[in-house]
Design a binder for these strands. Structure first.
Lengths: 244, 244
DNA sequence: CGCGCCTTTGAGAGAGTTCAACTAACGTGG
DNA sequence: CCACGTTAGTTGAACTCTCTCAAAGGCGCG
């Protein structure tokens, strides 16, 4: 084994490989990929993985837990640009300038796999599926942002939050977790920041959705009680929610 | 010459190659790239280049004129996700599903260079700089969308429009056009759609900026009269505007 | 067990939308 | 080349969704 076997973790036995770079790779290819990956120590809540200006050397795949990425303006005002869950790849915005462009910070204890980019790029020359997989991830991120523009420009606070919950539910399901009940690893404030709303609005809406019987809220725990009602309220949107 | 020499156009003599794929390629590489490019007939105003669902076979580089890309929801409501000018590459959102995901439509008479993706991908194996350039374009688009989220979530109507004008000005300058005076190829309605505002707001703001002496407006023609005032009003944003 | 920080709820304010009416520019066919 | 219909742009007035400000409660963590 090329690596130090921290935590005895490998792509071959990772339960999220179906969402991650290994998708569509054959056994040999996955082994080669696995060989170049460096497993990092766990990140604790609030630990930063990357900061703007950091030299870009690696992409990161989320192994467990969750993280947020955000950018800052001069005033230090924060804008969250994405939440990351297992199988997601972090760092594509850094390629152009070979410098990371945003902060990425753990929302809870999290583990990531480091993918040294130079090696990955060399391997992508040989393994066509890996190359296409990398492009595919970036493409999905671009498409996701198009949906986001529709959401932020055209949808009400209610629709934004319902979409957010539905999207989370879908992502949990893809990862083998319950889509009916899940814990929010982000605060109400972070949800609002991401959706262009205030904490107060998020709080009020969650209360309202509960009164309407769509969800149940117990602090961070969300249970979706009425998928039909949720889908119904979202029907006119048709924003796909298939990617990271 | 591999192609039909429509309009006798080649990367070697294209005045936007410094912004386009050829950046950083050497003479031989540019010639190879040029060989695979198919020049298309000019698009006329309102002609569509691609539609959602179209099979993805090629990326397109803007050669002249300008275009908009937009997505639709079920109700047919339109959300513009980007404006394209010479040197820009169109179609990265299509890679993941091998289908185009958005409409791209000419805002005025425009010409594009078609880049057959399969061939481009093969060439990218050999020419590392070309591969990196492709990744770099996608990375820039992702970063651009992060800035957009900050703009849409945190900034007032005034700041959004000023940013839009400053960004346009910068893009024209990069392309060798005047950054002081330019024609808007998009309508007020399209600007508003892109920025999450209504036509009326755009119109009122342009009038106000003119009264304040920042710009002069004559229909589609915008002249920036006071860059200092413009920059001053944008100072707290620090949203980079360096990409397509 | 005490101090953050997170969350909830209420009341008031405001930025931008909506609705409406009018004008200007465009292009098409008679 | 003009009449006409259509699309684009401007301006005003009223409205509303969400924000801001304020205060209190609760959960979690050291």
């Amino acid at each position: 084994m090329a690596n130090q076997d921290n935590f005895s973790i490998h792509c071959q036995n990772c339960s999220f490989s179906h969402l991650c770079l290994p998708v569509a790779l054959n056994k040999t290819e996955i082994e080669s990929l696995d060989d170049i990956i460096e497993r990092k120590k766990p990140l604790h809540k609030h630990d930063k993985l990357v900061r703007p200006g950091d030299a870009f050397r690696s992409l990161y795949a989320v192994r467990s837990g969750s993280l947020k990425s955000f950018v800052n303006n001069q005033d230090g005002e924060e804008q969250i640009v994405g939440f990351h869950f297992p199988g997601d790849i972090i760092g594509f915005d850094a390629l152009r300038e070979s410098q990371h462009q945003s902060f990425t910070q753990a929302l809870e204890t999290a583990m990531v796999c480091e993918l040294p980019y130079e090696t990955l790029d060399k391997m992508a020359i040989q393994f066509h599926k890996l190359r296409h997989q990398l492009m595919s991830f970036m493409s999905a991120e671009i498409k996701q942002h198009h949906d986001m523009m529709m959401l932020l420009n055209k949808r009400t606070a209610e629709e934004r939050l319902l979409y957010f919950l539905a999207h989370l539910s879908k992502r949990f399901e893809e990862r083998g977790f319950s889509h009916r009940q899940f814990n929010l690893s982000m605060t109400r404030n972070e949800i609002g920041n991401y959706l262009g709303l205030t904490v107060e609005t998020i709080s009020r809406l969650l209360t309202r959705f509960q009164k309407e019987g769509i969800i149940e809220v117990e602090g961070k725990l969300i249970s979706i009680m009425n998928f039909a009602a949720l889908d119904n309220k979202l029907q006119s949107m048709t924003i796909s929610s298939h990617c990271g």
